[in-house]
């Protein structure tokens, strides 16, 4: 126990007195930026893909787009995100000849990846909405697109909110891999604190607690949002 207290003291020394908390704050910020921006990009990509995939397949364009979308989804769901990150950073970027900051790289890959997962969630959500809603919209002369955006997708989103929350939590946890391309996230911050003293026990313990707290807060937030939405469902 004494040795543990000693380790805690050592950690606090670096964390507070030597300014280690600043690195942790930057790491926390990057973690959140990558997860939130990735989620937002993922929602846009996922909604577009889901819309294409549930469209009636009369037209050739739609069939071609649909093929492309299912390839995209298979690609991003079929490979580990670390691999996607590494390939994007060390293969794609040099090939195209573009320089990007590692945080931007992480955001891009997280967005592309969660787009694939969210498209499947969204597709399930759209299919769970009564087809009568689409027919109701079409019967009064609204276009497919308008009915989809104004009637069907809002109801789909309500149905999939819990699953989307889980996706966000997954993204936050997955950010711990972005140090593979040098992005300074929560993990890298604590890793560098640990390496300063060759003492990893307390830094990693604190890191774990921070992750747990973030995840619990988000889970709570989702519960509150769900309850709000359900209220509007009941009418007044």
């Amino acid at each position: 126990m004494n040795s543990f207290m000693f380790k805690v003291e050592k950690f606090l020394d670096i964390f507070i007195d030597k300014g280690g908390y600043k690195e942790v704050l930057i790491g926390l910020q990057n973690t959140m930026i990558i997860a939130v921006a990735g989620l937002l990009i993922g929602i846009v990509i996922g909604t577009l893909i889901a819309t294409v995939r549930v469209m009636p397949k009369y037209k050739r364009v739609v069939r071609v787009l649909d093929k492309f979308c299912s390839f995209y989804v298979a690609l991003f769901r079929g490979t580990p995100m670390v691999v996607q990150l590494l390939v994007f950073y060390y293969v794609m970027l040099p090939l195209i000849g573009i320089k990007m900051s590692s945080v931007l790289v992480a955001i891009t890959v997280f967005g592309l990846n969660s787009g694939a997962y969210i498209s499947e969630i969204m597709r399930g959500g759209i299919l769970s909405v009564d087809p009568g809603q689409m027919e109701g919209g079409r019967s009064v002369g609204l276009s497919y697109g308008t009915t989809m955006m104004k009637i069907v997708i809002p109801q789909a989103v309500k149905n999939i909110l819990p699953t989307m929350g889980n996706e966000f939590i997954t993204l936050i946890k997955e950010t711990s891999i972005v140090s593979f391309v040098g992005a300074k996230d929560l993990y890298l911050a604590f890793q560098s604190i640990g390496s300063g003293t060759y003492e990893y026990m307390v830094p990693y313990l604190v890191m774990a607690i921070i992750y747990i707290v973030i995840v619990c807060l988000i889970a709570l937030l989702i519960k509150v949002m769900e309850r709000r939405l359900r209220k509007s469902d009941r009418g007044r």
């Binding site: 009564d130 009568g132 809603q133 027919e135 109701g136 919209g137 019967s139 009637i151 809002p154 109801q155 309500k158 469902d233």
Partner: peptide, 8 residues
Amino acid sequence: HFNLFNNK
């Protein structure tokens, strides 16, 4: 089955 817009 009416098909009113449930979210409106």
